[in-house]
Design a protein around this nucleic acid. Structure first.
Length: 430
RNA sequence: GCGGUAGUGGCGAAGUGGUUAACGCACCGGAUUGUGGCUCCGGCACGCGUGGGUUCGAUUCCCACCUACCGCCCCA
């Protein structure tokens, strides 16, 4: 093969694109009900937008960014996630202004890029649907955002998913907890796995969800971040849990849950699904949380924010594995079988007229025999086949066959042209 | 970035250091001239991921690279 797509990219072929459109439309409709509006930001940003927001030591920044210097020697990064760009746009366009109704609720959908080893459900160019809400610290907003994510999965027919939440508290909380955790783990340093030794000082919270069995044992008695929450943080988290309960949204609290991006604080959550296609354990399909402070970090006024990102590829994998229903689209209403060159012009007129009336129509373009044309009509699941040959042309009629029943009758061309929906539309109803 | 498995026609899949690379599905054509299914007949890889090497000869052996998949790291 001479040319192949770049590693970690995928072609979305027509058959699958149907599912993509469906997902996007369902999401847009749902988001509109929650009063979120679409925002479209560039697929690349200045490097600093991401390095500043995600944290200089995060893996995403240190090894997974797709970055390069352009011809003007600007350090450019293909966006690895959606939030930073939206926050940048929020600040740059002054959406924090007093004339904006708060919270400002935005959503986006599009490709993201991360330079990493591809696996199923993990690509270098992948797609996220995400939402962000700025300007309110209300726990109600936390819960609404979470609920919206849950609703989306439910609407798309996903089964076996669960909500897991945690609180990272505020800055002070994280600092205090980080120290406590290091103090707890340090005496056991030699017992830790190599990966966790590495993690201990760079990102100690990561040790908590190590997959190493021995690490897990050590970590079992580690202090919990929930014991270090400041009063305000605790109050916020308690309210979130309370409200989730009020809405009858089941959840689990997982105090060891952490985040890959440094900007998160307070409520964080993941919606995880369990299905073999995505490996043995639970896989996160939707993840998000609060990021109070991020707007300041990118040069805006003090503005709280919260959002989530949802991986479309993973979602699709789940939908396929679980046979989630997809709408049937683009059914063929009419196929016109032409016999003989003399009928070509009339055939074209027929299909065009039928389309004009709002039905789908197709014809043969390969000069094939009637039998072959019928075979194709059958494969395409045509509801009606109209046949026209020299005899019909001379008499200005066509043979109209209803494929489901096999009934065939001769009708006037004039009727097709002048009154198709009224006379024959009945055959095209579901 | 690390470890492992794999790569034969549109898809699935057999195969061997040496004349014409099985088979199934799909597709195309035909079975007395203009009708969908079934059946039957026929067609369909100048080529076995790419590039080198070994050899009289390689799809089959060796090396490198590419890509996919699985695990780790990390993550949606």
């Amino acid at each position: 093969m001479k040319y192949q797509r770049p590693k970690g990219t995928a072609d979305i072929l027509p058959e699958e694109a149907v599912a993509w459109s469906y997902i996007e439309n369902v999401a847009k409709k749902l988001f509109a009900n929650y009063r979120f509006n679409e925002i479209r930001t560039p697929m690349f940003e200045n490097f600093e937008v991401f390095s500043r927001s995600a944290g200089d030591t995060s893996d995403i920044v240190t090894k997974e960014m797709y970055d390069f210097h352009d011809k003007g020697d600007r350090h450019i990064t293909l966006r690895p996630e959606g939030t930073a760009g939206v926050v940048r746009a929020f600040v740059e366009n002054k959406l924090y202004g007093p004339e904006q109704i708060k919270p400002v609720k935005l959503y986006y959908m599009g490709p993201m890029f991360r330079y990493e080893r591809p696996q199923s459900g993990r690509l270098r160019e992948f797609h996220q649907i995400g939402v962000e809400a700025f300007g309110s610290e209300s726990p109600n907003l936390d819960v609404e955002v979470i609920s919206m994510g849950m609703h989306l999965l439910k609407k798309l027919g996903i089964q076996n998913f669960k909500l897991v939440i945690n609180s990272l508290g505020d800055k002070e909380t994280r600092k205090a907890y980080r120290e406590a955790l290091i103090a707890y783990l340090e005496p056991h340093f030699d017992e830790l796995s190599d990966d966790s030794k590495e993690r201990l000082h760079r990102n100690p919270l990561r040790v908590l969800d190590s997959k190493d069995k021995n690490d897990q044992k050590l970590v079992a008695n580690a202090p919990s971040i929930l014991d270090y929450l400041s009063d305000d943080s605790k109050q916020h988290f308690e309210t979130v849990k309370q409200l989730l309960g009020d809405l009858n949204i089941p959840y689990e609290v997982e105090s060891s849950m952490v985040r890959g991006l440094d900007y998160y604080n307070h409520t964080i959550f993941e919606i995880m699904a369990h299905d073999k296609v995505l490996g043995d354990g639970d896989v996160t399909v939707c993840a998000g949380g609060r990021y109070n402070g991020l707007v300041e970090e990118l040069g805006g006024p003090e503005t709280p924010g919260i959002g989530f990102g949802l991986g479309v590829e993973r979602l699709l994998l789940l939908m396929q594995a679980q046979n989630a229903a997809l709408p049937k689209t683009n059914d063929l209403d009419v196929y016109v079988v032409a016999i003989g060159d003399e009928t070509k012009a009339e055939t074209l007129k027929i299909v065009e007229k039928v389309r004009e009336y709002g039905f789908s129509a197709d014809q043969d373009y390969l000069n094939r025999k009637p039998k072959s044309q019928f075979k194709t009509a059958n494969r395409l699941n045509a509801k009606i086949v109209m046949t026209i040959g020299n005899d019909e042309l001379a008499k200005q009629v066509v043979n109209l066959k209803v494929m489901a029943t096999g009934d065939e009758q001769q009708v006037k061309l004039e009727d097709v042209y002048k009154n198709f929906p009224k006379l024959f539309g009945k055959f095209l109803e579901k």
